[in-house]
Amino acid sequence: MTDQTTEPTVKAQSPLSEAWDMFRRNHAAMAGLVVLCCIVLGAIFGPYLYPGKPFEMAWAPFSPPGADGFLLGTDYLGRDLLAQIIHGARVTLIIGLSAAIVTVVIGVTIGAMAGFYGGIVEEALMRFTEFFQVLPTLLFSMVIVALFGASLPMITLAIGLVSWTAVARITRAEFLRIRELEYVMASRASGASGRKLMFRVILPNALPPIIVQSALMVGSAILFEAGLSFLGLTDPNVISWGQIIGSNRQYILESSFTVTIPGLAIFITVLAISLVGDGLNDALNPRLRQR
């Protein structure tokens, strides 16, 4: 992992701190990171700091942002929109994160096995992946959520089940490339077992593109959840940003901010995540670094 363009006078850096230096110099990515941290902190501590209740009628419906002491106004039932946004952030982030984890676990396992073993295993697993690519993602998870219940684990699973294919393809491509490298041969010759080769020898070097893709997966899982809850297929007792938009949608003639504000929240969160993902891509991808 030594960088040949580095001046010899420069002190040797660990790959991690080198990547962090790259990342830090990327202003857009840093901005994204700061915004993302604020959102996460707000989701964790907001409900304790802000007294508003998301489900209680607090004021007259549709009072505009800033009026009557409600910073973001009230929704069609007169509920405090800011309280809803703060409480919704938790669900949105939890589902985004856990669905991304499911996605990565499935994708990396299948991609790694396909790329490592090759032959029939690879053929079968890639056919399996293509099969999941054919399924219309949102429709399929709509059906799962509608038929099997809209609990948080089920929504997470429904999103994870349809989104892992990209991760699997990337992992496989990396494994195909890396397994032919000399250091892997050496490790194989010295008698490393298949599992050790896969997860201890090859996987660490295949990680950079997988990490970037996982970061983007959090964003797309958030969008996915937003879509499901916008359609009203998620649990009505668990508030999320998409759900606020969905339930206020009929009233855009009376007031549009109840729809635009939660949408803005989703947009800013996903934008921050994709900026961070872009920054990670530049920082972790040595091929791009030389440009």
Binding site: G219, G227, I252, V259
Partner: peptide, 11 residues
């Protein structure tokens, strides 16, 4: 990439 498509539509 970042805007939810239904939100873009409503806007």
């Amino acid at each position: 990439y970042s805007a939810p498509v239904f939100w873009t539509g409503i806007l």
